[in-house]
Amino acid sequence: MLDCKHNTELLSQSYDRPITLRERIAMRMHLLMCRGCRNFEKQLAFIRKATRELPRKL
């Protein structure tokens, strides 16, 4: 079973490389049960969006 530390690593890597089906299922299973990681997942998406908007905000 994936713990939070490894789950956050995978969530982060999903932005940097293609994630395998097995990894994706493990992440989804973990996220179903873990509110902290669900918040983290949303916040990662927000951080990406914000950083990509940064050039327009300078």
Partner: peptide, 23 residues
């Protein structure tokens, strides 16, 4: 500091309020 020895969050992330408005 963020994770305990067992790999769980030391302090799990809480919801961010209206992040879109921050932009």
């Amino acid at each position: 500091a963020l994770f305990k020895q067992n790999g769980h969050w030391a302090d799990p992330p809480r919801t961010w309020n209206a992040p879109e408005q921050s932009l």
